[in-house]
Every structure is written in C-alpha cells, then in structure tokens.
Amino acid sequence: MSKSITAKDLNVYYGDFLAVEGVNIEIAARSVTAFIGPSGCGKTTFLRSLNRMHEVLPGARVEGQLLLDDDDIYAPGVDPVSVRAMVGMVFQRPNPFPTMSIRENVLAGYKLNGARMSRSDADGIVESALRGANLWNEVKDRLDRPGSGLSGGQQQRLCIARTVAVKPEVILMDEPCSALDPISTLAIEDLIAELQQEYTIVIVTHNMQQAARVSQNTAFFNIAGSGKPGRMIEYAETSTIFNNPSNQQTERYVSGKFG
C-alpha cells in the first residue's frame, strides 16, 4: 500500500477562474507532507484536486498531469470514484454520518457501496480501523451508539477510522485539527505519525507548529493578490522551510510577518 504523488504543471480552475497555477510537486510514499500558506492561497483547492473531490463543485476542472505512482488520475477514462476509493480524505469539520452508529460509520465505505461481508469480517475491520485511529479503547463498549454522540476529537478520529477502513493508498487531511482542542489535536498528531508507516499523508494546516511537528516535507503556497491564482512558492524538507527557506516570501510567512 501507499503510493507517491506527482503533479506536473497542474492548473486548477473554478469555471474560468484559475485558482491554482502551475504546481509541480513530488510527494514520496509513506511520508507526511504539509501544505501551509495564507487563507485563500489554494492549498485546500489543490488538496481536493488530488482525489478529484474538486470537481464535485459545479464548473471546477483541472489541467495538467497528476500521477499516482505512474497512473495519471486525470487521464481520460479514469473513473473519479475509483480514484477516491484509493485516495481517502479527512475534512476540516468532523462529519460522521448522523444516521449511523459508530460501527456503521467505520464500515460506511463498505456498506454504502453495498458490499456484503460476514459479521466476523466486519468486526475485524471495525476493530482494526478503530485501533488504527486510536479510538478503540474509548468506544469499544458503545459501538452501536450514534457516531454524532462522540466528542469533536473522537468524531474526527472516527472519520479517520472510516477513511482507514477502506485501506486507501493516500490520506488527504484538510485542516483536520482546526475545530479541535489541543488535547484532541495532540491525539490526531500522534495518529498521523503512526499512520505514516503505512500511508502517504498530505495535510493542509494553518498551524505552522503543527506542520513542523508532523511533516517531513512542507510546501508553501501563496497568492499574489485577490483574484490572482495561488502558486506553490517553495517545497522542501520541513526543517529547511522553517529554518532556512530559500524564498523570501516563505521566510516572511514562517516568521509571522504576514498571513
């Protein structure tokens, strides 16, 4: 499992509006890569283009190549649904399915696709996914309770468990801790460090300390002004970005002079 991601001259559009321009990036398998940058600079837009969630919005489209190992996910004939099955996503706000129990939420990727499985297989998936998300001990006695009854941090880990349960190659995280308190954030960050053993992880964050803590590589995005496209300014090892950035904009951002 886990694949590398390569973007070649990727332009992301909303209708006629060019939102992100000319991204070239190589993300290694089994690593954590953080996207940082000011609001509106296109981090999330680019992240959503990595599993073709971007085009759920009307008029959104992508130009350029995006390789998952060696397969272009934007090649003609590629089914976005199978891309998304391979590239999972965790959202900013915890969004467990309110009609489902904790157990059903973990199995959602299977159940919603109509997969049939034996009770014991399902139990195995639930337990391993919840253990993988460091949530098993907290919820093992109430698997049949609604997922929305958990705390925000638990809900977010439930969403991670739901994503892990379908065994994706890549996990995208869109500011997964921005709605959580510091303790839940710590739990998620620990979890990211563990998940990195098996998955390629890309995380968007506004918290630069978080980027520094969890990631090996960091990409800095910036925008020249409103109405202009966002660009990837610098991509390097996290320590380089934070201690010795080559670009002046990056330095000004990580030192807190703007954004």
Binding site: M86, N95, F97, P98, A108, L112, G114, R162, T163
Partner: peptide, 17 residues
C-alpha cells in the same frame, strides 16, 4: 449538509448510492 455528501464521495461511493 454538503459535508455528508463529500464524506461519502471521499470514501469512493457513487453519487446515486
């Protein structure tokens, strides 16, 4: 909420499902 639809899409679930 649109988040629920997106959560489902992100799991590789088809639109009609």
């Amino acid at each position: 909420p649109n988040e629920l639809r997106e959560a489902s899409y992100a799991l590789g679930v088809r639109k009609w499902r």
